[in-house]
Each structure stands twice: as structure tokens, then as C-alpha cells.
Amino acid sequence: ITGDVSAANKDAIRKQMDAAASKGDVETYRKLKAKLKGIR
């Protein structure tokens, strides 16, 4: 179950990262990237 949750989280975070990148929001992008590392 835990694996599914983190996989879903990663997917959601990647989508947020894409949105931040397209807006040029480097700050948010970095925060999300750090979150991704924390999940692993």
C-alpha cells in the first residue's frame, strides 16, 4: 500500500513540477524536487 501512495505522490509532484517549470517558477520547482527526493 505504501508503494502505491508514494507512486501517486510522485506523479502528482511531477505534474506540479511541470506546471512550475512552464511558469518559470524556479523556487517551487526546487521545493518539489526536494520533496521527490524525500519520498524515495
Rank of each mutant, 00 (worst) to 15 (best):
L36Y: 03
A12E: 13
K23F: 04
A20C: 04
R14E: 05
A21I: 14
D4R: 13
K15Y: 04
T2A: 10
Q16Y: 02
N9Y: 15
D18L: 15
D11E: 12
I13P: 01
G3Y: 04
N9S: 12
R40H: 10
A8S: 11
A8T: 09
L32D: 02
Q16L: 14
T28H: 05
V5M: 12
T28F: 05
L36M: 04
E27N: 04
L36I: 04
R40W: 13
S22L: 14
K37H: 12
Y29P: 04
G3T: 09
R40E: 14
G24S: 03
N9D: 13
Y29I: 13
Q16P: 01
A7H: 10
A12Q: 10
G38W: 08
D18Y: 14
V26L: 15
Q16A: 14
A7V: 08
M17E: 00
D25W: 03
A21K: 14
G24I: 03
G38V: 06
T2W: 13
S6D: 11
A34K: 08
D11Q: 10
V5F: 11
K15R: 11
L36Q: 02
D4A: 11
S22A: 14
A21L: 15
A21D: 03
L32S: 02
A20T: 02
L32N: 03
V26W: 15
I13L: 08
V26M: 15
A34R: 08
S6Q: 10
K15L: 07
R14G: 02
Y29E: 13
T28M: 09
L36N: 01
T28G: 06
I1Q: 10
D4Q: 12
T2M: 13
K31E: 13
S6R: 13
S22K: 14
K33D: 05
T2H: 11
V26N: 09
K23P: 00
K10A: 14
S22F: 04
A12V: 07
R40I: 14
G24H: 04
A19N: 05
S22H: 07
Q16N: 03
I1D: 09
I1V: 10
G3N: 11
A19E: 14
L36R: 02
V5Y: 10
K23W: 03
D25C: 12
K35E: 05
S22V: 09
R14W: 04
A21C: 15
N9A: 12
G38T: 12
D18G: 04
I1M: 08
A21S: 05
A8R: 12
A8W: 04
I39D: 06
I13Y: 03
K37V: 13
D11A: 13
K31I: 04
S22W: 03
T2L: 08
M17C: 13
I13Q: 02
A19G: 02
K10Y: 15
A21H: 06
A19R: 06
M17Y: 01
A19F: 08
A21F: 14
D11G: 06
A21N: 04
T2N: 11
I39T: 06
A34G: 03
A34D: 11
K10I: 15
A19T: 06
N9V: 14
A34H: 06
I13A: 01
K33H: 07
I13K: 01
A21E: 04
Y29T: 09
K10T: 11
M17I: 04
S22I: 10
S22G: 05
A12H: 07
Y29H: 09
